[in-house]
Design a protein around this nucleic acid. Structure first.
Lengths: 224, 224
DNA sequence: AAGAAGTTTGGACCGCCGGTCCAACTCCAA
DNA sequence: TTGGAGTTGGACCGGCGGTCCAAACTTCTT
């Protein structure tokens, strides 16, 4: 059968040239505004007032776009961690930087745990590795220590990101934690659960995250 | 407009009754055979020789199905961890059990880091919490220690699962690690990266995972 | 100056997805 | 025997990621 469709005529050329960087920038905007599920290639074309072919001309696929967007955010964090302070403090600063970045952009947390060898994760590995070296952890042990720390940070990132996605405001958060505690307490009479439920309301994600980093640092220095 | 479609007549009643359990079981089979992307409601209907309505009659949605499937696998692991041994050993056994389960079912690793308060993750929290209690970690510190350990395990789980998804055989794995090391070494002259690349070929995921667990255990007991 | 060669753009199109809906069917109690 | 309650299959819907191609624009050649 013949193709009877008549393409609509083109208007004028767009004044602002499209580029990979501009597309990634727009993707970050869409992700921040509408969340991970909100980033569709269609939404992106609308945001950039263009067509789908134009985007796929600059970008391989959506996966690459997400990786580039996450790398953009993480790159800003790792760039801010210098070598001018105590390496233990530098590791705390790096971890907190990632935590805060994920608090501001929850989709990054999900993305980081999706693919181990994407550029953003590589950045984190590298930054952790060099701080551990400065800390004096020798070669073979450094791989184990780095893997432990990176995996902890990525795991916490994903969990907190999922939480942040679910609850927006602080008031919502408090109510949500209470509902959760009540559910646990009712569902399971085990004293460990009862105890955890009763402590849930005075729980601070950021503090707990940092406590985890300190446990790790204690473990590293104790074994050195 | 009127509906002109003529439904095909029904045959006989299915001999094996459908139930939520049977559907979850089938979902695990499909996931193991074709991976996470392979689990579509359509594939499931084919595997069960039924229609889509029948499935949605027993299951709320695909998310619930994945959570139930993961809970099925994790439940078998946590059930195998008793209280009859040294609590430190019990924690190592639990962590290794999860590692091996994810090695056998990579989709579980991805699923666990998707949603913090799904039943499977709750099981892990509970199991870790009770072992920490036996270890003598007091209440408030227990929350921090448990969170550190659980987040580490989940983070590592997601990362290793992504790796296991990409590479099937051991030979593939070796070749893949070499390619990766070469890419790193070429891409980044930083000595930390060069060093890591040169060590990559003699790297064992399972050993490294266990080393991480030990770092956290050292940190926890040192602070007690 | 003009046209050829190459690049960027927009949108129609494809196959597939998760989820809804409802008529047909089975089963069981009255 | 019959009629309601519970179950089943598949048509249908809107939306997704990705491909493809001709029109429009830019750059280079002569």
């Amino acid at each position: 059968m013949m193709d009877m469709t008549i393409p609509t005529p083109r208007n004028t050329r767009r004044s602002d040239a499209l580029s990979r960087d501009r597309i990634v920038e727009a993707a970050v905007e869409v992700l921040d505004a509408t969340g991970e599920a909100g980033l569709t290639v269609r939404a992106l074309t609308a945001h950039l007032s263009t067509g789908r072919g134009a985007i796929y001309h600059h970008v391989a696929n959506k996966e690459g776009l997400l990786a580039a967007a996450a790398d953009d955010i993480v790159g800003r964090v790792t760039a801010g961690v210098g070598d001018d302070e105590d390496p233990e403090q530098a590791i705390r600063a790096l971890a907190l930087g990632i935590f805060d970045a994920i608090d501001a952009h929850p989709w990054v947390g999900t993305q980081l745990s999706r693919e181990p060898w994407q550029p953003a994760v590589f950045r984190i590995w590298k930054s952790v590795g060099s701080q551990l070296q400065r800390l004096g952890v020798p070669g073979p042990a450094r791989a184990d220590a780095g893997s432990a720390l990176v995996n902890y940070v990525l795991g916490a990132a994903a969990q907190y990101a999922a939480g942040a996605r679910r609850v927006t405001s602080d008031a919502d958060r408090k109510a949500y934690l209470e509902t959760l505690a009540a559910q646990w307490a009712q569902h399971d009479p085990d004293p460990v659960v009862q105890d955890a439920a009763s402590q849930l309301h005075e729980h601070d994600d950021r503090e707990q995250f940092l406590a985890g980093v300190d446990i790790f640092l204690t473990g590293i220095t104790a074994r050195r």
